[in-house]
């Protein structure tokens, strides 16, 4: 019976201080293999300085059906935006 190992999602930090961004996935049998495979597959052009790998199974995702319920409620909360507030004329450094 063939196996191709389980799938892992790869996140790469490109520069010091930057966030880890999703790069793609690899197959691997264990953690070390997943890290090394991610390195060999996704950083051959000097794209990385740090790698996270996460078993794909461990990712929980919202679905498109959730979109309206999850995100629409946030689109009328304009008081979270700095431009919502009127400052007296001439105010500086704010």
């Amino acid at each position: 019976m063939d196996n191709q190992f389980s799938q892992w999602e790869v996140f790469i930090q490109k520069k010091n201080g930057a966030a880890h961004e999703h790069a793609g996935s690899v197959h691997a049998a264990d953690k070390n293999m997943a890290l090394q495979n991610a390195r060999d597959v996704y950083t051959r052009r000097n794209e990385g300085r740090s790698i996270w790998v996460v078993p794909t199974d461990s990712i929980v995702a919202s679905t498109i059906e959730d979109e309206v319920v999850f995100f629409d409620p946030a689109n009328d909360k304009i008081y979270r935006n700095p431009n919502f507030y009127k400052m007296p004329k001439g105010t500086t450094n704010l």
Binding site: H27, N37, V41
Partner: peptide, 11 residues
């Protein structure tokens, strides 16, 4: 033995 290992050996 896997596609990933092919890349590793070539590296």
């Amino acid at each position: 033995p896997t596609l990933e290992e092919d890349l590793a050996l070539t590296n």
